[in-house]
């Protein structure tokens, strides 16, 4: 469960970012004044988003397990760890504001597709619709999710990967709850100085994480990760590949 809490804490630290990206959507879906059911809708949305996150995390973990289980696992594990460290560092640099553009451009090009796909749901608002919206939202490009997926791959376990991403979902909830409770909050905080400061701090934290991850990939570095000792995961993957035949 360590993965869950670490990821939740990190995401919480960086969740000022969530206000800009997802805060507006929270308001659209869940917060309509003091409407009854607003809390239920908010929770459904988080459940949907969390499910997608955890699913992606499980996939990343499965990928990590497959890589570690391959014949040259020492080197492939090392390569995986280095890649994950680079991904973490990349996200950290983005949050620091040193690199910009790519992520938001992606989101922009998705907007028309999003409107076309989910317009009917947002208009008709059938019971339980925030769950589906949340499910789709989970696939939105998000640097925090990328960081989470990198970490999930390193766990080399679907279960731990899912927990890591569940942590990301959990960590973003307070900020998003704040956004949907105070409609104007997101808009005001958009420009606020503290938001920049907090986001940058989270970026710096991620870069430290990246350094720690990288040190594990170095020769002589030791894997102090609880989740997946390579020796155990190799036969495990073997089991999965032949489960059906």
């Amino acid at each position: 469960m360590t993965e869950l809490w670490v990821a939740a804490a990190l995401t919480f630290a960086a969740s000022a970012h969530c206000l800009g990206m997802c805060g507006g959507l929270m308001v659209t879906v869940a917060a309509r004044g003091k409407r009854p059911g607003a809390l239920r809708d908010f929770l459904l949305l988080q459940l949907g988003k969390g499910t997608t996150y955890a699913f992606l995390g499980a996939l990343a973990g499965l990928f990590g397990a497959t890589v570690t289980a391959s014949a040259t696992f020492v080197w492939s594990t090392r390569a995986l760890t280095v890649l994950a460290a680079l991904a973490l560092a990349g996200v950290g640099v983005t949050l620091l504001g040193l690199r910009s553009g790519t992520v938001s451009a992606w989101g922009g090009s998705l907007a028309p597709l999003w409107a076309r796909l989910f317009g009917p749901l947002l208009q008709a608002r059938p019971t339980g619709f925030p769950l589906v919206i949340g499910l789709a939202m989970g696939f939105f490009p998000c640097p925090l999710v990328y960081a989470g997926l990198a970490a999930a791959a390193v766990t080399s376990s679907p279960g731990l990967g899912a927990l890591t991403l569940a942590g990301v979902a959990l960590g973003s909830i307070p900020a998003l709850a704040l956004a949907s409770a105070a409609t104007n909050f997101a808009a005001r905080s958009e420009r606020s100085a503290w938001r920049n400061l907090v986001t940058r701090a989270a970026g710096a934290l991620l870069i430290v994480m990246a350094a720690v991850t990288l040190s594990r990939a170095m020769p002589g570095g030791h894997d102090h990760h609880a989740g997946a000792p390579p020796a155990a995961s190799a036969p495990a993957m073997d089991h999965s590949a032949h489960q059906h035949h």
Partner: peptide, 10 residues
């Protein structure tokens, strides 16, 4: 997701 967890064994 649940099935993935079961597959990896351990």
């Amino acid at each position: 997701m649940l099935s993935f967890v079961l597959y990896t064994g351990g």
